[in-house]
Design a protein around this nucleic acid. Sequence first.
DNA 1: CCATTTATTCCCCAATGCGGATTAATTCAG
DNA 2: CTGAATTAATCCGCATTGGGGAATAAATGG
Lengths: 401, 401
Amino acid sequence: MKTADPELMRAINRFNVLDTIRRHGPISRVEISERTELSTTTVSAITASLLDDGLILTRHEGDIRNAAARGRPRVMLELNPEAARVVGAKIAANRMVFAVTNFRGEVLSNLTLPIRVDRQPIAVIADLIEDGVRRCVVDADLSLDDIDSICIGLPGVVEHRTGHVRSSPIFRETNVDFASEMTSRLDVATIVESDAHAITLAHHWFGRARDLDDMVLVSLEQTLGLGVLHAGQLFRGAGGLSHNLGDLVLGVGRSETIRLSMLAGEKAILGEHAMDGRFAEAVRLGRGMTHAQTLIAAEDDALIAAASRAGEAIGLAVANIVTLFGPPRVVIVGSSLSLGTVFVESIGRSYRDAIPPSISTVAELVFDESADETWAQGAAVVALCELYESPWGTTGPAPAL
Amino acid sequence: MKTADPELMRAINRFNVLDTIRRHGPISRVEISERTELSTTTVSAITASLLDDGLILTRHEGDIRNAAARGRPRVMLELNPEAARVVGAKIAANRMVFAVTNFRGEVLSNLTLPIRVDRQPIAVIADLIEDGVRRCVVDADLSLDDIDSICIGLPGVVEHRTGHVRSSPIFRETNVDFASEMTSRLDVATIVESDAHAITLAHHWFGRARDLDDMVLVSLEQTLGLGVLHAGQLFRGAGGLSHNLGDLVLGVGRSETIRLSMLAGEKAILGEHAMDGRFAEAVRLGRGMTHAQTLIAAEDDALIAAASRAGEAIGLAVANIVTLFGPPRVVIVGSSLSLGTVFVESIGRSYRDAIPPSISTVAELVFDESADETWAQGAAVVALCELYESPWGTTGPAPAL
DNA sequence: CCATTTATTCCCCAATGCGGATTAATTCAG
DNA sequence: CTGAATTAATCCGCATTGGGGAATAAATGG
């Protein structure tokens, strides 16, 4: 149980001020005071401390009030991009994407390695990631010493708190302590997170959910993932587990349970097409869905039917999630969206059919074909979030928790 | 955005101390200090204030440390049962149950009205509830003036924050502002909550989840409900909606979506049996499930099959919920449990089949055939929780929020 | 009756947020 | 160009909080 002392009080207000500055670009102290409902005195004190710690910068231009700007001009404050650098990575079965960002989450360099890593031994995957991180850092004209934190986004079930990967389609082993593995290799604090959570934060900071503190994101990639944002924070189940949508059960067949992943995973959609020569090559290169889109455009009936079936299943799952969480918006992302309108419309239709009438107006569905880079950026944001929350005043680099 | 000032700080610590006293029976200041990690000084100050407000009592007996009790004996503190009285109610289609409790949540009187109210006009239902509340209060040798708060637990989708009932099987109308309705009738602050949330808190305070701050409860009554306890608090979707399990989609039939309620609601289980004369009478009296149990004992094949099918569907739904929330325990309650082992074992079997192996050890299933009184008590606990959180120092009886 | 032990309270300090007064930095009127 | 007006930011003093250490209270044991 956290004891509420003045220190915590300050930490909370400090975080709110910092977060307000992050969200609302260059912003004056007065406006921070209005938004946070803290007194100008307190804002002044906190911003002084933030300036002192080099987390924010002043800027004397850009006071864009009504032209009749009487009085002393406001001094605008903004995040100091140099305050920290982090690396975010998205690891998928057939590619790894890295991004180095500054304290604002702006990408300084990024790197895509189209390597198929699934089912390789942990050590091999870790080697490749280590290499990618190092290269991406160099690309940004930095050294690893300049990096404050790293976050690896993986598909599957990830226990953020402990850094264990319970199960992932790209690992043969289960329950891997991957955070420790990478931390010891790179000698930089490294955290592990579900890729869906990463893209969720990316959309909260920069994408389709900038305006919302509550929302749900569904990611449709090789793996089907879920991210829930609640009161501006990632909602991680009781034990800090990430959610794995693909494991959701949609019914029972003759002798087996039918999981969403069996109906709507990449494999399920491509089906026997994946066997075809040219297609198989495309899939291997991670262009499976784009290729499928061209086949659909050419009216490949089997594929159209598969896409439609998958969309239906996903629509049902989304309806269930809305039933449970009641978010004002559901952002749907992932490579499967490049299947095109057949797929997307199927999701929408099925959702509208399945959503209970009593809450049919609660949620709005938004589709977004996020770029790979955005996923890696999201992972970087996860890392930044941890930095934000940590007790900045204390210089300690190791946030022992 | 809540600004963190000394007042909030005190409110937090005060709540923690009060909650610790509630949970751990008569407890000394020293032990409170240990559990909350607040200094003894602070605990002393806060308890002095709580004593001053009459929320807790001292008791000089009962220091049960090791017999070698040297030194000044500890003064035990406990909740003052007289500090508040609340009424909780559980409204079901065929009965209404009321309970008056003291500040500790102990039942002072309770009352069951076996009245079928579903689909009556709001005014009629409100009349009946008003009457029940008044009678139950009188039974406890109290007057309505003595009551600090009332909570009505209803099946369906309830928006706790606004007091609106979005949809409920017992209301013909949708989106009813039932909290206002009852508040104006009784002239006592009345809140509305999902019945599932009520029984969830009941189990957290007194039942099968006393030891846990994170858990999920599934209620199987006429309506299928869900309660999620997260970090010791009810998790109410983004908008304060309650969850409605029955609306979960389990698949798509020829021309309609198959919802859990269609497979596992009371009606679905009893099926055509409900038409039978004696049986219909039992159902009308709210003894449908018990009666069904005797039929099952007599090896009524159709009913056994129905119970088994329903159990399967629920097992799947529970597996999905565990996939999403990852709670350490799932408490399953409700009248349907009186169907007996066929039903319960079917749930367990189906759950074990459906739960993804990677998280098969996360959650433990617990069945509990909670008495009606417990549900009403749970509603009372919901009311008490609101009182707990409110700014006690200020005397205002109307917690305007 | 007094030493010992343990629980609780008292006294004082550091930190926090806030309100009001003060200072700073600009525009506008003449 | 100068001074009044206006708005932003800071400074000062206060009330409140939690914490540490000393002091006090209330029992036991000899």
